[in-house]
Simulated assay, not measured.
Amino acid sequence: MKEVWVSNSYAKINIGLNVLERLDSGYHNIETGFCFIEWTDRFEITPSSRNSLTMSDEKIPVDDTNLIVKAVNLLEKEAGLKDQFHIKVQKNIPAGAGLGGGSSNAATTLRMINKIANLGLQETELMELGKKLGADVPFFIQGNPGFATGLGTEIEPLNIQPDGWIVTIFPGEPSSTPEAYNFVEPNPEPEFSLRKVLEEEPLEEWEYLIINDLEASVFPRMNIVGNIKDQCYEFGASYASMSGSGSSVFGIFEQDFVAIHAYESFHSLGFSANLSRPNFEPDLGIYKKQIS
């Protein structure tokens, strides 16, 4: 019998993204709301005589540029990891989509191997390690919706998971994060407090109060992203936006049949899409099974 450990790696969406300041380092001070959606990659990890990684999407490199490999290397360097593993990932979250797939994979790797190898790292320690891999990795380790500030690494848990059906659509081509930020015009004084709107205003008001500053730099270069956002509203979304630096777009719907119609319509148009339930909570459990 062989031990296999399984867990899901979840995608996120950004509800609102204010770019407040461009720093001398080239990074940006931002504020954004992070929520989970039901778009997942599936992880299977088995003890092995050497470290190896298999991805179902063969276009994704499995060398040292992959965040999963970087996470394993970080645990070896910082946490004394000696055990070795074969990691198999069924990849469903599209890459370059603004859904945090790579960061989520890194977080799942840290959480799973910490448990499997009995490294004994606390969640706060895993989050500190995660910061070295990517700005939003700590969010995925924490596993709660939250409000991110600074470079996006300072995340305060905040119950802002929408009470609505979320349809997320990937246009089929990735958006460049560096380009999106390069062409953005920072605004140090947004008209409305994003945090206050997310906490206090009803969903039907979000269209008028919440923006993603990066849309202005992405839409002119990728018309399809703006077109999908418009289609979400045409299908009856209460709120629609690009997620993060794109290229994915999501619409939040109050009624299930309207959301399902939108989801099926985007599918029939040939787009990858996902439908998430209201008040969705990710299952971050790590489960062991025996196989012969």
Rank of each mutant, 00 (worst) to 15 (best):
E199A: 05
E204G: 13
E199S: 14
N187F: 00
G172M: 03
I169C: 00
F140Q: 03
T149F: 01
G146A: 11
N182I: 01
P162T: 15
V184N: 01
P178I: 07
R195Y: 12
R195N: 10
P188S: 02
P145F: 10
N144K: 13
P157T: 10
F183T: 10
F140E: 05
L151Y: 10
E189I: 00
E154Y: 07
L203A: 14
T177W: 00
E191W: 05
G152N: 03
R195V: 11
G143C: 04
V184I: 07
E179L: 14
E156D: 11
V184F: 02
P145A: 13
L194S: 13
I169K: 01
L198N: 08
G143E: 09
N144R: 14
E199G: 12
P171G: 07
F170W: 11
G152M: 09
A148G: 10
A180G: 09
P186F: 05
S193L: 10
E201L: 14
L203Y: 11
A180N: 09
E201Q: 15
T177Q: 00
I160C: 07
E185G: 04
E191Y: 06
L194Q: 08
L158K: 11
D163V: 14
L158I: 08
P157Y: 04
L198R: 05
E191S: 10
A180M: 02
V167H: 05
P188K: 04
E173Q: 13
E201D: 15
E205L: 15
P174N: 05
L203G: 12
G152Y: 13
L158H: 07
F170E: 06
W165P: 07
G172L: 00
N182F: 08
F183N: 12
R195P: 07
L194N: 12
A180S: 13
T153E: 11
I155Y: 02
P202A: 10
E179W: 04
L198W: 04
F183E: 04
G146Q: 06
Q142H: 13
I166F: 06
E173L: 08
G172E: 04
Q161V: 13
A148S: 07
N159G: 10
F183I: 05
P171I: 05
E179F: 11
Q142M: 14
F192D: 02
G146C: 11
P145W: 13
Y181M: 11
N187W: 02
T153V: 05
V197D: 03
N182C: 01
W165Q: 13
E179M: 10
T153M: 01
G146K: 09
